[in-house]
């Protein structure tokens, strides 16, 4: 059967991984190739890079970084951050990304999702949705890293993105992000039940039980986590072993 996926997420600034890594064996804790290889060795099913580089002058750096990673790590690579036009999607794919994640630009210009999916195929277009709970069982889409409210209902927005050609949804709870208290399971369940396409749960993982809950209770197809892996609390393999023990199909 199809395995549920574990996806470590790496924040990248000017071609260097930030948000620290505490693997003592790493020679250079910010080297994206070295970190990607480490997660690959641990059994990560995919890797997601979020480019948080502020200056658009530095855009070329991310392409070179992806080229280097893609020449050494043979698992799917997703890159997001600063994708504004179809030409940005093309440049990232040409550099070696397998999927491109679109967030704020999808809200500003939904046609971008349709155009990119039409040109390169739904399989490589991920729409990232940052959602905050605004009332019981109601979540709103936020952009610009959670600072700007959009008035859009997260579930309806996710459906619209599916209809426009998104191949997958990366769903982050802004309420839980960084809290280490677990995924927003009601949000995850509401979105995954409404969609035909896979949903990646994100935001709030603090321990391995949270990963199990995201899949079993939230119904997610994949789980994304950053800090529990970066700081060496758990390896990806430990996470998978724990999930397997809890009856979840994983690639070990």
């Amino acid at each position: 059967m199809l395995a549920k996926r574990i996806i470590p997420c790496l924040d990248v600034n000017a071609g260097r991984v930030v948000k620290g890594m505490s693997f003592v064996e790493l020679r250079d804790a910010g080297d994206p190739v070295e970190i990607a290889r480490r997660y690959d060795d641990q059994g990560a099913d995919e890797l997601t890079f979020l480019d948080i580089t502020a200056s658009s002058d530095d855009r070329g750096i991310i392409y070179r970084m992806i080229e280097q990673v893609a020449s050494q790590v043979f698992i799917p690579l997703t890159v997001g951050g600063g994708v504004r036009e179809v030409s940005d999607v093309r440049s990232l794919l040409n550099a070696g990304a397998d999927k491109v994640s679109i967030n704020t630009s999808a809200v500003l210009n939904p046609q971008l999702v349709a155009d990119a999916a039409g040109r390169y195929g739904s399989q490589c277009i991920v729409v990232a949705i940052d959602a905050k709970q605004v009332s019981p069982a109601h979540w709103e889409v936020f952009t610009h890293g959670g600072r700007t409210a959009t008035g859009l209902d997260a579930v309806a927005w996710a459906k619209k993105m599916q209809d426009l050609g998104a191949g997958e949804i990366l769903l982050t709870s802004m309420d839980r992000d960084g809290q280490k208290s677990g995924f927003d399971l009601a949000l995850t369940r509401a979105v995954t039940d409404a969609l035909e396409i896979p949903v990646i749960a994100s935001g709030g993982v603090g321990n391995l039980q949270h990963l199990v809950d995201g899949i079993k209770k939230g119904g997610a197809d994949a789980v994304l986590a950053a800090s529990i892996f970066h700081f060496g609390e758990y390896t990806v393999r430990q996470a998978k072993q724990f999930m397997a023990k809890n009856g979840i199909e994983v690639r070990l």
């Binding site: 191949g167 035909e196 396409i197 896979p198 949903v199 197809d221």
Partner: peptide
């Protein structure tokens, strides 16, 4: 529910 596309390992 089994999603389409069939995506993953």
């Amino acid at each position: 529910k089994l999603k389409v596309p069939h995506m993953g390992w």
